[in-house]
Computed example of a mutant assay.
Amino acid sequence: MNPEDPRAQRTRARLKAAVLDLAAQQELATITVSALARRAEVNRATVYLHYPDVDALVTDAMEETVAAVARAAALCPLDAPRDRAPGPLEELFEHVAANAHMYRRMLGPHGSARFAARMRERLTVELTRRFTGGARPAGWDDVPVGVHAAYLAGALVGVIAHCVTEGTRPEESAPAFWRLFRTGCQSTPDDR
């Protein structure tokens, strides 16, 4: 199968739409390939031709969401005041709140480990790129760039998961995360 073939792209689009529709209604662990095939109006073999399992399909279907989260995190100016979250971070948490049901399905206790891992991976890549491009704050030279980026990426995914499972409002979540994030990005006076 050629993934560039328009027919394959249409089929993948139908499968992605079907899995997101089903995920809006039920826990990911309860979505079967048979139900997915019925919803997408394809046969089970077609599902397996494109994806090895439902988790891989969910991860692919949420790829644009993962990219949006990574872009928003990468846009946050590290020198913004501690008491006010940057606009991109506020927008990110508003997006998460508006789509809380889907994030809860993806990151909750019965969610997709593959999705959470993909989100951490994309965030780590974006933050590593940013840090190696000169936007890394001073005072962290004793910590490898990749470790620093992975630490912050894991923190963001963890806070998003907490917010959607606990129902934290974005106007509380964004500033709280920002204060924690800045602490993880800035050196203390003792370190200088």
Rank of each mutant, 00 (worst) to 15 (best):
N2T: 00
P3V: 05
P3I: 04
E4I: 01
E4H: 09
P6G: 00
Q9K: 13
Q9F: 00
T11C: 07
T11P: 00
T11M: 09
R12I: 00
R14C: 04
A17G: 12
A18L: 13
A18Y: 08
E27R: 15
E27M: 10
E27W: 07
T30D: 14
T30R: 15
V33F: 05
V33H: 06
S34A: 13
R38E: 09
R39A: 12
E41H: 06
R44E: 02
A45E: 01
A45Y: 00
T46V: 07
V47R: 00
Y48W: 02
L49K: 10
V54E: 08
V54K: 12
V54N: 10
D55W: 07
A56K: 11
A56R: 15
A56D: 10
D60F: 07
E63D: 15
E64V: 12
T65I: 12
V66H: 12
V66C: 11
V66N: 13
A68F: 05
V69M: 12
A73R: 10
A74Q: 06
L75V: 00
L75I: 02
C76P: 00
L78D: 11
D83S: 14
A85E: 03
G87S: 15
G87H: 15
F93K: 09
F93T: 05
F93D: 06
N99M: 06
N99D: 12
H101A: 14
M102E: 05
R105K: 05
L107G: 03
G111F: 04
G111H: 04
A113Y: 02
R114F: 03
R114A: 15
F115Q: 10
A116Q: 08
A117G: 14
R118A: 15
R118Y: 09
R118W: 10
R118I: 10
R120Q: 15
R120M: 14
T124G: 14
T124C: 11
V125L: 15
L127C: 07
T128Q: 12
T128C: 11
R130D: 06
G133H: 05
G134H: 04
R136T: 07
A138P: 07
A138L: 13
G139T: 04
W140A: 12
D141G: 15
D141M: 09
D141K: 10
D141T: 12
D142L: 08
V143F: 01
P144V: 06
G146H: 02
V147D: 12
H148I: 02
H148V: 01
A150S: 07
Y151N: 08
Y151V: 09
L156Y: 00
V157H: 00
G158H: 00
V159L: 05
V159F: 07
V159W: 06
I160K: 03
H162L: 14
E166R: 13
T168I: 13
E171H: 07
E172D: 08
A174D: 01
P175W: 03
P175M: 02
P175L: 03
A176H: 09
A176T: 12
F181I: 04
G184Y: 05
S187Q: 13
T188F: 08
P189V: 08
D190Y: 11
D191H: 07
D191K: 11
D191W: 05
